[in-house]
Design a binder for these strands. Structure first.
Length: 213
DNA sequence: AAGTAACG
DNA sequence: CTAC
């Protein structure tokens, strides 16, 4: 960890060894990121995936990058093509990639090479119950998560499902990075409150970058 | 199963 | 919080 990591103008929270919340990291890029999300969603619409148990997820999802995370009755997996259209997911823009790489570096993970960017859209009440990101082929690379729009409560657990869960509010522009010993930490998002943000109205968007392959 | 119901 |  270097000194510039902890610049005085930046809120930062060490969640655990290997896990860091970088406050306001993506603020400058946020309007361009939101415009890019609209372009991605025009090609690969945000949709409510089904869990293997047949339940509709409350969060709407799409992807860009070489691999996209999908779920249906047959399971969770990464796919090179959008199951809705059969087309490859759109390319990950340098704007997205550079942001993720800079955040990973700032959190102590140099050389991050994401090939997957999952885009999540939360409406009021949408949530993600506690889970692990473990569908990637290797867990040597960190997870980088970018928050935009309405603030949400991040649920940060431990290495076992039953471990104590801490809550941290994630604001517009916040980035969370977890890797190394924290790579498989259980995490989730509490139901999104009814709220409004100048750039997104009632919605929260989240970008999750991973190296899936 | 990244979700929900049931419970005390 | 536990069970499925």
């Amino acid at each position: 960890m270097t000194a510039d990591l902890f610049a005085a103008d930046r809120r930062h929270v060490a969640l655990d060894p290997g896990a860091l919340l970088l406050g306001g990291f993506a603020l400058d890029e946020a309007p361009r990121i939101l415009a890019a999300i609209a372009c991605i969603a025009a090609r690969a619409p945000l949709r409510h995936l089904e869990t293997p148990g047949g339940r509709r997820m409350s969060v709407a999802m799409t992807n860009c990058g070489e691999a996209g995370w999908v779920s249906d009755r047959s399971g969770y997996r990464y796919a090179a093509h959008d199951p809705l259209s059969g087309l490859p997911w759109g390319a990950m823009s340098p704007l997205f990639r550079d942001l993720a790489v800079r955040a990973a570096l700032a959190a102590g993970f140099p050389g991050f090479a994401p090939d997957a960017c999952l885009i999540n859209r939360y409406e009021p009440g949408a949530r993600l119950t506690l889970h692990q990101d473990k569908d990637e082929a290797f867990h040597t690379a960190p997870v980088v998560s970018v928050s935009l729009g309405v603030s949400a409560t991040f649920l940060w657990g431990g290495q076992a499902r039953g471990d104590k869960v801490r809550r941290h509010v994630l604001h517009h522009g916040d980035v969370v990075v977890w890797g190394g010993p924290a790579r498989l930490t259980f995490h989730g998002i509490a139901p999104l409150p009814v709220d409004a943000h100048p750039l997104t109205g009632p919605l929260r968007y989240n970008l999750t970058f991973r190296q899936a392959r």
